[in-house]
Design a protein around this nucleic acid. Structure first.
Lengths: 245, 245
DNA sequence: GAAATAGTGTCTATCAGACATTATGGC
DNA sequence: GCCATAATGTCTGATAGACACTATTTC
């Protein structure tokens, strides 16, 4: 509040050299659950830099094509997975002069949750594949700063699982409570008490049961539920980790 | 996972027309507490568009000057306030073709908390000023989509107050518990129970008392505390709103 | 002593966590 | 009947919220 009374705030341009603009892209961390494991979608880079390495899907924002950042993220998500109505949330923006050897770049990263049942079979496992999350990331080396980005996304996902219901977006429209609990345990990597988990879900009042039942290979069939309101955000009063045994 | 096996993921390449890059800027929501009210720093726009309107401070990222986005935010914050070590956190990135009449722009917004005692007296109240937060924003009309951005920042601040200790960054290094409680009440806009508040702070074990005391105009003097660790993030097990009476 | 504010003590309704018990299917 | 899993019931220790009470200063 001392120097520069001259600075006109956000008053920018016209006379800005466009070559001095940083490149601006949108990247995606797309999660699903598959074979009892949290998985992330990776693509293999066909060009230098990091040619041949696995990376998060994404690409340059195209001002002539995308009206807004989120629209760009959604478009690329649909292109990659065919899923039209995913859970999509902005994670963070990463930008510096040294995260890409080609120069100053900024990328806004979104993370998405989709049910694996909705993903259409992939054409080419050589260039696009699901990769299981182990700990904070994946076992292979990723291009650019994508390992860091993925770690941030996994942390955000785990954190939000503690106090929201977003895990339902990893399941198809109809599911059972044991299936939902399994998602939580899989991602949080710890067993949860069944009774407490069900009490918590009931209190949130976010599910409605469907009079039909689902049978399993063995044991008593489980009640099938439907998510009541895909838009409303449910917040739990306490952290779910306290349900750990 | 079906169409385009051609897309090389984040592969972006040299031959992109720089004129098609969106403009990329960094904006700041700088909060302080002052005269018993949460305040935000606004600057008056000197140029069109929105000439004469109040706006959030910020400006274009300069790749030749800033190594990273956060560095750019910190530089502009120091320029505006003189505060060297603020609390600074990335809020969100807003980008679309219609948020600025001049064309496609993206802006990464940071929000900062500083103690009003640390701000050096401003040079020119005509172009830069603190403005009290009322409800979700300020009473005057803001330029661009800054009203929406400010509302998001206020919401984030209130939300984080519920489960973290970030309010200490709005106070000078040494303060009393009634002062800290007053900050919480001011921002959350509800009275809190003194006993519960103190129990909560004690459990977080984030403050250490200084054997000296602070006297007030009237009544018993209050113990002065110092924040134990400005880097460690303290999380509370429960939401603080439950302490409301 | 009165007023004002800081700080402590205590009671209680609530509830998370633990675990036992019952329910319902297949074989 | 047995096994496996789903679903419900019950007990208890911990604690948030409420509020009364004590402490320490100024006037």
């Amino acid at each position: 509040m001392n120097r520069l009374a001259s600075e006109p705030g956000a008053a920018q341009l016209p006379p800005v050299n466009p070559a001095e603009k940083p490149s601006f892209s949108v990247d995606l961390v797309i999660f699903t659950t598959y074979e009892d494991c949290l998985q992330v979608l990776l693509v293999k880079r066909a060009e230098a830099p990091f040619k041949g390495r696995w990376a998060l899907p994404g690409g340059l924002l195209e001002p002539g094509r995308d009206d807004a950042i989120e629209g760009c993220a959604l478009r690329r998500l649909v292109e990659k997975t065919g899923v039209e109505a995913p859970y999509l949330e902005q994670l963070k923006t990463y930008g510096s002069c040294d995260r890409d050897p080609r120069g100053w770049t900024a990328t806004t990263v979104y993370f998405a949750l989709i049910a694996s049942e909705l993903v259409r079979p992939r054409a080419n496992q050589e260039t696009v594949r699901w990769t299981p999350i182990q700990g904070e990331g994946v076992s292979c080396e990723l291009a650019f700063d994508h390992a860091r980005i993925l770690a941030d996304a996994v942390e955000r996902l785990r954190s939000k699982l503690e106090y929201t219901h977003i895990a339902v977006h990893l399941l198809p429209k109809e599911f059972t409570l044991p299936e939902l609990q399994r998602i939580y345990e899989m991602i949080l990597q710890q067993p949860l008490d069944k009774s407490s988990f069900r009490r918590r879900v009931a209190q949130a009042d976010m599910l409605e049961e469907i009079p039909g039942k689902l049978r399993d290979g063995s044991g008593r069939p489980a009640q099938v539920y439907r998510f009541r309101d895909y838009d409303r955000r449910t917040f739990f009063p306490r952290s779910i980790s306290r349900y750990a045994r």
